[in-house]
Amino acid sequence: MKRSHLNIALAVAVAGLGALLWFSREQDEVFPPLTPLAQDAITSIRIDHPEQPPIRLQKQDGRWRLVEPVEAPADEFEVASLVNLATLDIKRSLAVGDVDLAELKLDPPRYRITLNDIELAFGDTEPIEHRRYVRSGEQVALVLDPPSAALDADYSDLVAKALLPDGAEIRRIELPGLTVTREAEGGTWTSPEQPDAEPARIETLVQAWQKVRAMWNAKRPADAGDAGEPVRILLADGELNLRIVEREPQLKIDNPAYGVRYTVSKAELDKLTKLPEPTPSPTPTPSPTATPSTTATAQ
């Protein structure tokens, strides 16, 4: 056989083998999401870690709240990480009877998350693509490992980063060395320590407390006790008792009722603890000097 004919025959054979592999390759199987729940249908979430108190959240009037182990407004961004679990894509699915649950750390699981009444048991990650084993009912799914700290046993990440509830109406703030107050909504702000302070300066401090947000949260140390400087904020429908525990290098404020320590930018320290300096009065513009008349009086 001529060499050119041999090359053509080999090319045809290779092309045929490629076509065979193409048409006979196994197609990727498409799976339904991890749960049948729509994200907006989820109204309750429970997180269970071994030997830790359960963490429970409920959706109330369209907003998420922690209800266990403490009652507190929830961080909507962090809760979204939990809600997103409902529609996670499944990369591979196995029947429970086809796997060793103990080997996959699913018997017992590392932790459980219950969305409404659907329990998801989380196990180990597989070593190649680091996907997480999750048991739901009689299936074990491999999913992309959820990255959020909201899934761990420390609930502090789930507490809202805003130090005051949305729409809170402040009536009085008691700070170390400074108190500001007003008798009723729409009334004039005053300060016993600085009776001459303009209401607008006090309003600036009040707005700073209404808007302040933590950069991150941490669990308040169990031995914190009464450490720090007390801050009492009286609201129209309750009060908050906080404690300033650090001023350097960042501002740290405890909320003992929530068991949370907020880390706030140091740039907020003076805004939250002092009245702003008075606005300087404008310097009056001097009147132009009168020019004597040069017109001689006619004699």
Results as ranks from 00 to 15, higher is better:
64 W>D: 05
65 R>M: 13
66 L>S: 14
67 V>C: 05
67 V>N: 00
68 E>Y: 03
70 V>R: 01
71 E>K: 15
71 E>H: 13
72 A>N: 10
73 P>H: 11
75 D>K: 01
76 E>D: 13
76 E>P: 05
77 F>S: 13
77 F>Y: 13
79 V>C: 03
81 S>V: 05
82 L>Q: 04
83 V>L: 14
85 L>P: 04
88 L>I: 03
89 D>S: 14
89 D>G: 01
90 I>W: 00
91 K>I: 02
91 K>H: 10
91 K>M: 06
93 S>Q: 15
95 A>L: 10
96 V>W: 04
96 V>A: 14
96 V>E: 12
97 G>F: 11
98 D>G: 12
100 D>G: 05
101 L>Y: 03
101 L>F: 11
101 L>K: 04
102 A>Y: 00
102 A>G: 05
103 E>Y: 10
103 E>D: 14
105 K>F: 11
106 L>I: 09
107 D>P: 06
107 D>L: 08
107 D>N: 14
107 D>Q: 12
110 R>K: 12
111 Y>T: 00
111 Y>A: 05
113 I>L: 13
115 L>A: 04
116 N>C: 03
117 D>H: 07
119 E>K: 08
121 A>S: 15
122 F>E: 04
122 F>P: 06
122 F>T: 05
125 T>D: 07
126 E>F: 07
126 E>H: 12
128 I>A: 07
128 I>Q: 06
129 E>H: 08
130 H>Y: 15
130 H>S: 15
132 R>T: 04
132 R>N: 01
133 Y>Q: 04
133 Y>L: 05
134 V>W: 01
135 R>K: 12
136 S>L: 02
136 S>Q: 04
138 E>A: 08
138 E>S: 10
139 Q>I: 06
139 Q>S: 09
139 Q>W: 00
140 V>R: 01
140 V>L: 00
